[in-house]
Design a protein around this nucleic acid. Structure first.
Length: 634
RNA sequence: GCCGACGUGGCUCAGCUGGUAGAGCAGCUCACUCGUAAUGAGCAGGUCACCGGUUCAAGUCCGGUCGUCGGCUCCA
């Protein structure tokens, strides 16, 4: 037997995974939950036959977690079956941070049922039921589940290609499963059921709606507690909560999905947009603004009327149909078309912070993350086919520069031709290859999403990782050979003939609104100085220092620092507390001592008392920090 | 849109099995003039999301609508 470290050991034929683990050490035997033999996961009691390379899967490994949680899902299903014998089981996999199981339950489930289910799970664990693997032929298995009335399992088995299917049995409970599993229910230590939600059978909205219970499980209680703690922390960072307490934005009942930006939220937006403009000018972009409402003919021409209509809003003006734009590209195209272009002008890069409206399903709305109107930091690049690769690579570099400023990690996904695509396969192939080559030459890793492209072209998506580890699609680069065709775009080549340009559609923030939300959660409201709605708050020690406070305020404001004085009739501690809760980066305490020496006492929101400096010195340091767009804790 | 839960003053939440609403914070007024996370006292503030029904009586029960939340689905 060969082990991952390259060592080789001899064992008698038929030795089990558990025996092997035990022969190496008792601690290892205890932690081992399964084995991996040439890429196949097997149970602990699996007899090994012949020369193999073996990896012992311990409960703290990725595979181990999955097995552990999968068993947790089975135990939960068993508990639910005991409490509600008429449920039908659907599927119950392990997922990234836990597991779920889908049930078809007549009377439904509520979160109050979770406590009962948890209690029953504890019973099952205490019963120390051995978990055994059973195999049956497909036909027997179908008959078996038909007799039990488990329609979903029957459907699953019918979809299998193998002749035999495996089951796992624990006590009176048996479930279709590939395995492997823990050896006994007793091995499940720390678990918690988290919430109940609806989920369609096989994710298809035309199929029955099932009840899904989410839970999580860990080998150690401390790990579970740490995870639950993290969830609480994440909830505290929720941009909807912080957005309200910091008065950044709101969503009113009168406009579901249509956010209101408050003065403080606007500061963040405006800073992001100013940064965006500065960087794009450096990269040779021009900026435009196109109308929000344009007539029906344009959208028919672009294909949106046909392919995107269910997501669009419409209006009628002088008895003519108009659409509210869901994308900015047709407007940009009209601008390109208004005159002849020479190949010498290309590439033409046109940016637009464009407000688009899309009808999203009511159930999907989520703070600023998912809204019905948002501002794309859009740009359209018109170019010759020979410029494709270098232009894509320039955009990739720009995206990288942007994300680095905020300290975000990200990964790239390539989405290919969707079902409802327009344009020929050849054109799609060409575009997809161009994108691939561009990333590969950059030496970047990427994932392929088959069939996930826009209807007019394939795309590269950039996914940011936020503080909770969730990923959000922000940047996207879409290559488009089709719109130029549909709108009959052209440029005059060096041969004096008309040629067809190629287009890139791209965004970097994606949506300004969503990006504000992501930043809010990422920084937990403690924005870097350059983005902070209020950069400094002056806190006079008592009312007699109000004049000096106003003087300092004026000087900071003249230097371009966003500053406020808190002259309210409150104690110093009270004002400090409030500024802390508002995550104001710098609190400047001014009393008699400071007034005499033209100084301020700095309190950083994270570091506390930073000592006294002159007003001039503070201004200089702050401006430097703002200019650097530093992501530091002050 | 679908499944489930929820919807009480600006915010966070009480209000038992139906008997015409309560707290803390915030706000306002007054006193205190204060050195780094809450000074004290007083005042004001609610058609209990909306519409309809049951009842002598509805925040509380029933139905519908809207919205929010957790998911599914979709996507920036």
């Amino acid at each position: 037997m060969t082990f991952p470290d390259g060592s080789v050991r001899e064992y008698p034929k038929g030795v089990t995974i558990f025996d092997v683990a035990k022969s190496i050490g008792p601690r290892l035997a205890k932690a081992t939950v399964a084995g991996r033999i040439s890429d196949h996961l097997v149970d602990l009691d699996y007899p090994i036959d012949g020369d193999v390379s073996l990896i012992l899967v311990t409960e703290d490994s990725e595979d181990g977690f999955e097995i552990y949680r999968h068993t947790a899902a089975h135990i939960m299903a068993q508990a639910v079956k005991r409490l509600k014998p008429d449920v039908k089981l659907a599927i119950g996999p392990a997922i990234e941070d836990g597991f779920y199981y889908d049930f078809d339950i007549e009377e439904g489930l509520s979160s109050s049922d979770l406590t009962d289910i948890e209690a029953e799970m504890a019973n099952i664990i205490n019963e120390d039921l051995p978990i055994e693997r059973v195999e049956m032929t497909k036909d027997d298995a179908i008959k078996f589940f038909e007799d039990m009335g488990e329609d979903y399992k029957v459907e699953l088995i019918n979809g299998f290609l193998d002749k035999n299917v495996s089951f796992y049995r624990q006590g009176e409970f048996i479930d279709l499963c590939r395995g492997p599993h823990l050896q006994s229910t007793k091995r499940l230590k720390a678990f918690k059921l988290l919430n109940v939600a609806g989920a369609y059978w096989r994710g298809d909205s035309k199929r029955p709606m099932l009840q899904r219970i989410y839970g999580t499980a860990f080998p150690k209680k401390a790990e579970l507690d740490a995870y639950l703690n993290m969830l609480e922390e994440a909830a505290k960072r929720d941009h909807r909560v912080i957005g309200r307490s910091l008065d950044l934005f709101s969503i009113q009942e009168e406009g579901p999905g249509f956010p209101f930006f408050h003065p403080r939220g606007m500061v963040i937006r405006n800073e992001l947009e100013a940064f965006w403009r500065a960087e794009h000018i450096k990269e040779g972009y021009q900026e435009i603004k196109t109308p929000i409402i344009l007539n029906r003919g344009l959208w028919e021409n672009s294909g949106h009327w046909e392919k995107y209509r269910e997501n669009m809003y419409f209006t009628v003006i002088d008895e003519e149909d108009y659409a509210i734009k869901p994308m900015n590209c047709p407007g940009a195209i009209l601008l390109y078309k208004r005159k002849l272009h020479s190949y010498r002008e290309l590439p033409i890069r046109i940016g637009e912070l464009g407000l688009v409206h899309r009808h999203e399903l009511s159930g999907t709305l989520h703070g600023l993350m998912r809204v019905r109107c948002f501002t794309q930091d859009d740009a359209h690049i018109f170019m010759t086919p020979s410029q494709i690769k270098s232009e894509i690579q320039k955009v990739i570099d720009l995206v990288d520069r942007f994300y680095n400023i905020f300290g975000f990690e990200y990964h790239v996904e390539l989405s290919t031709r969707p079902e409802n695509a327009i344009g020929s396969y050849e054109v799609w192939e060409q575009a997809t290859t161009a994108l691939k080559e561009a990333v590969e030459e950059k030496g970047m890793d990427y994932i392929i999403n088959e069939g996930d492209g826009a209807f007019y072209g394939p795309k590269l998506d950039f996914h940011l990782k936020d503080c909770i580890g969730r990923t959000w699609q922000c940047g996207t680069i879409q290559l488009d050979f089709i719109m130029p065709e549909r709108f009959d775009l052209s440029y005059i080549g060096d041969d004096g003939e008309k040629h067809r340009p190629v287009m890139i559609h791209r965004v970097i923030f994606g949506s300004i609104e969503r990006f504000v939300a992501i930043l809010t959660e990422h920084f937990a409201g403690a924005f870097p100085l350059w983005l902070a709605p209020v950069q400094a708050r002056i806190i006079p020690v008592s009312a007699v220092n109000a004049d000096y406070a106003k003087d300092v305020e004026r000087r900071l404001a003249n230097a371009g620092i966003r500053v406020e004085s808190d002259l309210r009739n409150e104690k110093l501690g009270y004002k400090v507390r409030e500024a802390q809760l508002e995550k104001v980066p710098y609190m400047l305490v001014v009393g008699d001592k400071e007034a005499e020496s033209d100084e301020v006492s700095i309190r950083g929101r994270a570091k506390g008392d930073l000592g006294r400096v002159t007003v001039e010195q503070f201004i200089e340091n702050a401006l430097e920090e703002i200019q650097q767009k530093a992501v530091i804790t002050c």
